[in-house]
């Protein structure tokens, strides 16, 4: 097998606060290939954004490794070379604060181009127009300021900025969760299009499971800093193994009877995600699990490959 685009090995990230140690991420491992979208799904507090930010170098990991094309990049972004920054880009959740309100769209898009050595003033204007065209915005937007743009348009500009440096991996941190559904669909379609054209790898962070069904090639579900289940998208939705996954999939709201039938048996969710400062013993999910056994509260389960490519972390699943 060739070297994956991104490989995360046993990643740990703890935050040391005055109220105690927040174990945001504990032992997360996954790989991501070029042209692939890996959906990292979880409730708020599951550590999914921490994983994303650690991959980007906004945090340096407490333990474990992050490999980009086989090269160790487990350091904060300040110590990463410019050539690496060019390869990894991120689109943030809130389009409102991801664009500087005091800089024009043209200035915002010129920044990545000038940093990464495409500052030939003759071609700069054309390049900016190309970027706007790519995200389906008219060229007049060059002189506009973020405040005169809608939320969806701002997110388009943020995407264009991230793609301006021609990265090979883009972290999408809930890029559509702040937007209207109609705009959401447009952005998702555009992201898929761009991926096909450029062969990008997407690490897609979201709490929206149903969205992942449409665009992710593989889905990983996180709970309290751990990946509970990781499977190809189709398998993940049709044959979920982990009780947590089943609970989540069964609680996706649906409109029609047919859709309802597609879902696993209805499991009423119990309780809420506990604080990552005070983690439950054994399997972190056991207090909310309806199928828990004696062992679950005592020992944390290992990640096992239940079937090829389908990983799960649960005592009830045995190969």
């Amino acid at each position: 097998m060739s070297i994956p685009l991104l490989e995360v090995q046993d990643l740990h990230k703890f935050f040391f606060t005055t109220r105690g140690v927040v174990k945001a991420v504990q032992g997360v491992s996954f790989t991501l290939s070029a042209q692939e979208t890996l959906g990292l799904v979880g409730e708020s507090g599951s550590g999914k954004s921490t994983v994303a930010y650690t991959v980007m170098g906004m945090y340096s990991p407490t333990g474990g490794k992050i490999l980009f094309r086989g090269q160790d990049i487990s350091v904060s972004h300040e110590r990463r070379p410019l050539s690496l920054k060019k390869e990894l880009q991120i689109v943030f959740q809130d389009p409102g604060s991801s664009l500087n309100p005091r800089r024009s769209i043209g200035d915002i898009l010129a920044l990545p181009l000038s940093i990464h050595g495409k500052n030939n003033p003759g071609t700069m204007k054309e390049r900016i127009e190309e970027l706007l065209q790519m995200v389906e915005l008219p060229p007049e937007y060059v002189s506009k300021y973020p405040r005169s743009l809608g939320g969806g348009e701002k997110q388009m500009v943020a995407i264009a900025r991230a793609l301006a440096v021609e990265p090979s991996l883009v972290v999408l941190d809930e890029p559509t969760s702040a937007l209207d559904v109609s705009v959401q669909a447009k952005i998702i379609n555009m992201l898929v299009e761009i991926q096909k054209k450029r062969g990008l790898g997407y690490l897609f962070i979201t709490h929206d499971l149903s969205l992942m069904r449409n665009i992710a090639h593989r889905v990983a579900i996180m709970y309290l800093g751990r990946i509970m289940e990781l499977a190809p998208s189709r398998v993940f939705f049709e044959k979920p193994l982990h009780p947590y996954t089943r609970m989540l999939i069964s609680s996706i709201p649906v409109v029609s009877e047919q859709e309802e039938k597609l879902k696993p048996q209805k499991i009423i969710p119990r309780g809420e995600i506990p604080s990552p400062v005070n983690l439950p013993s054994g399997c972190v999910f056991h207090p909310r699990c309806i199928e828990r056994e004696e062992l679950c509260s005592q020992k944390e389960p290992e990640m096992i490959e239940a079937e090829p490519g389908h990983w799960v972390k649960c005592h009830l699943i045995r190969t």
């Binding site: 980007m56 170098g57 906004m58 972004h77 300040e78 410019l82 920054k85 060019k86 990894l88 880009q89 991120i90 943030f92 809130d94 604060s97 991801s98 664009l99 500087n100 920044l111 990545p112 940093i115 990464h116 943020a158 900025r161 991230a162 440096v165």
Partner: peptide, 13 residues
């Protein structure tokens, strides 16, 4: 801490 500053950092400004 605003995302636009973080974006600029991650672009290598």
């Amino acid at each position: 801490n605003e995302y636009f500053v973080q974006s600029a950092e991650l672009l290598g400004a």
